[in-house]
Design a protein around this nucleic acid. Sequence first.
DNA 1: AATTGTACCTGTCAGC
DNA 2: TGCTGACAGGTACAAT
Length: 277
Amino acid sequence: MPELPEVEVICRSLEPKLIGKTIVDCKVFLKKLIQTPNVKVFEKEVRNHKITAVKRRGKYIQIFMEDDWVMVVHLRMTGKLLLKEIKSVPSKYGHIWFLLDDDSVLWYEDIRQFGVLYLTKRADLYKLPGLKDLGPEPLENEFTVEVLQKLMEGKTQKIKGFLLDQRNIAGIGNIYADEILFQAKIHPESITKMICDAKVQEELYESIKEKLQQGIAYGGSSVKDYVDAQGKKGSFQEMHQVYGKAGQLCVCCGNKLKKMQSAGRSSVVCERCQIKY
DNA sequence: AATTGTACCTGTCAGC
DNA sequence: TGCTGACAGGTACAAT
């Protein structure tokens, strides 16, 4: 479900409600979601540390607590973190229950059960699989055109696969990859290293920043069931130009948008506007 | 090194 | 109405 903008919106909606609070009880109903440590230790150790920050890295949510504990959550396709009242009726997809010291409840819900959670010490945070090989944060200052150019250099990967590969850049998924490539007028099947015109590279760089920022500003893309921690939908899906629009007409040239497979994922493309390098 | 297929799950939707 | 197959925002793994 969620890509960088959705995860960012979730963190922003979660942080003010969680800071200063303490998890006083935890019950895991679907044990396979907990990667490390084992479920008993997770349920015990996640308790009784005041929450100090909620941060995003790529598509990972990091809940920092006192005593150097960090809970890490990856929502994969259909995971949700939802703040609810203690008396609210549990969803059939509610798999983990966290009781806070103000009697509110944080639920981890997940229809497809692909999500993963970890509890770790701060010093070991970037030893976690996934987190340890993440590329730069595209909305931070560290991510410059030069950094992007360096990453693209010599890569024989298709550009769609390049954008989806979290080791290159952290946080881009299938929706934003399609929107970014359309905005930059680059065909998803382009070989990354063949995109060597500096103008086009800059266009790609700006498109990455712009589309991700817009996604956040619109509260994320609620294509199916994405909601933030208060259960609010985003509206960026109304701004999509290609994702989910196969068969419709290109907003630039009126050509019919085509659906294709690229790098193992479905992609929607305007074959006239988007140039193959 | 990169791509493809498969796996993990459940729900939805189109077509018959 | 009910069945079947394709497909879905992600990632890890094996085989090629």
